[in-house]
Design a binder for these strands. Structure first.
Length: 329
DNA sequence: CATCAGGGCCCTG
DNA sequence: CAGGGCCCTGAT
């Protein structure tokens, strides 16, 4: 039986305009995991809805976001679900955390001014103006996801994530949704490596165990890392076991919000950027990086994110053949 | 039936 | 710094 959560707190969030709810809460390029759910706005007038679980202070919470205003007059209705009411201080901390995770205070005006006229970006900005980074989970949770992406196809990453959630996650029910709450780092830190290998994680079992142990023993401070500049953060993150340049690239952008974090391209993205930026099959990484730097400067990763997500939104309406071959779901 | 690479990274020489 | 090895899968 899933853990039943009740509404305990509501708030109206006002993002810095312009804001695009749909493009911020839902990233079609991400592999699906049963820790979140998204329902687009319906023609009946029902606004867009987003749900996710949130492990906070050791207990699983539910979060619901509903679009309540867009672009220049943005607003989001937020509801928190829990087993029982939480202290007001916790709500305040959570609101700050969520403003960060959904990048609600970002000022995109310079980005739009400088990059808006760019021939590649202009049509995309037209469609997705106000899109932000979304940090789907805590640093620990995002590290788990990035480890599962390593040297695996999308299908395999999805399988590994499901196995882990079924084994170590907490099923919760709120607002008519059933999702999994993430496990605490302690849970995997204590798990024997054979147990993890039984979930077909392969050599990633060792990475996840070591990372979980490091987080359980409190040797990593996400707050401190958020305060570092990009290069300092990169150096620190590379020290994490099982985390190399490809994972750090994702981290610096998605988790630490460095809009210029396009300093590395891994093979999969190389193929996609080659098509998007040059309409070619495979362009050398250096050329991709140089071109992005020249076009978008300090906003190059944010710009790449816009192009990338736009592609995956387009794919929903009609399959993009070359992309389908790369995804192999 | 083999062999190979896939949204890497560690470790060794 | 280069290169072998690593888990598991689906493609060839």
């Amino acid at each position: 039986m899933p853990l039943a959560l009740q509404p305990v707190f509501t708030a109206r969030l006002c993002p810095h305009p312009p804001f695009n709810f749909e493009a911020t809460v839902h990233k079609p390029s991400h592999f699906p995991a049963p820790v979140e759910a998204y329902e687009p706005a319906l023609s009946t007038g029902r606004p867009g809805h987003f749900w996710q679980t949130l492990l906070w202070g050791g207990q699983p919470l539910g979060l619901r976001l509903v679009e309540a205003g867009r672009l220049e007059a943005p607003a989001v209705e937020l509801t928190l679900f829990a087993q029982s009411p939480l202290p007001n201080a916790t709500y305040a901390t959570l609101m700050r955390e969520l403003r960060w995770r959904f990048d609600l205070d970002a000022d995109l005006s310079e980005f739009e001014k400088i990059c808006g006229p760019d021939t590649l970006l202009a049509p995309v900005l037209e469609r997705w103006r106000g899109m932000r980074i979304k940090t789907g989970g805590s640093l620990y949770e995002m590290l788990v996801i990035y480890v599962l992406l390593q040297n695996a196809t999308v299908r395999r990453s999805v399988q590994m994530m499901s196995s882990l959630l079924e084994c170590y996650g907490t099923p919760v029910a709120f607002d008519g949704r059933e999702l999994y709450g993430f496990w605490p780092a302690e849970a995997l830190a204590a798990a024997p490596e054979e147990d993890l290998r039984a979930l077909k994680l392969g050599y990633r079992a060792r990475f996840l165990r070591r990372l979980s142990q490091d987080f359980a023993s409190g040797t990593v401070d996400e707050g401190v890392l958020r305060g570092l500049d990009k290069e300092a953060a990169r150096r620190e993150l590379l020290k994490l076991y099982g985390i190399g340049p490809a994972s750090v690239w994702y981290l610096l952008f998605e988790v630490f919000h460095h809009y210029d974090a396009l300093d590395y391209v891994s093979p999969w993205e190389q193929r996609i950027y080659s098509r998007l930026f040059f309409d070619e099959d495979l362009v050398p990484p250096e050329r991709i990086l140089d071109d992005a730097k020249r076009r978008w400067g300090p906003w190059r990763m944010l710009a790449a994110h816009y192009l990338f997500e736009d592609l995956f939104w387009r794919r929903r309406n009609e399959p993009v053949q070359w992309l389908e071959e790369l995804i192999r779901l």
